[in-house]
């Protein structure tokens, strides 16, 4: 598998570090970190990542607002991440076209599983 370029959009330094460790242990790289959705949109446009991990609750612009501004091709690359995993939130994310959702705290193998699923399920 080709090494993938991952963008982390999350205001938590803990999640950023956990994500970086998880993806780098499997030969991929984190190419950027945005602490809010607005910065995330700018980095998506600049860096053109292969995978985007997107937190739901963030300052300035939250994850669902980011999804509103992304086309389907980019939403296919999104792994949504949240400390909350209630049905309503999952439903909203699914309505935007998100296929993968991770609950915090997550394990490294959960991240890699989601990345592999995105790759094998590419449209």
């Amino acid at each position: 598998m080709q090494p993938l370029r991952v963008l982390v959009i999350d205001d938590s330094p803990f999640v950023y570090k956990a994500m970086k460790r998880a993806v780098e242990a499997h030969g991929h790289s984190v190419i950027g970190h945005a602490e809010n959705g607005q910065m995330g949109l700018e980095l998506i446009s600049q860096l053109k990542p292969d995978i985007i991990t997107l937190d739901v609750t963030m300052p300035i612009m939250d994850g669902l607002q980011v999804l509103q501004r992304l086309d389907h091709e980019k939403i296919d690359k999104v792994i949504m991440i949240s400390a909350m995993g209630d049905m309503e939130l999952l439903k909203q994310a699914k309505e935007y076209g998100v296929r993968f959702f991770l609950n915090k705290p997550f394990q490294p193998e959960d991240v890699i599983h989601a990345i592999n699923e995105i790759l094998t399920g590419e449209r």
């Binding site: 938590s12 330094p13 803990f14 400390a83 909350m84 209630d86 049905m87 609950n103 915090k104 705290p105």
Partner: peptide, 24 residues
């Protein structure tokens, strides 16, 4: 500052599990 950010995230994860279970 970093201590506060990490502890805030810990709170988010504990609180998130809690309200997810209640909401569901």
């Amino acid at each position: 500052q970093e201590q506060n950010l990490f502890l805030g995230e810990l709170g988010n994860m504990v609180g998130g599990k809690f309200i997810t279970a209640l909401n569901n």
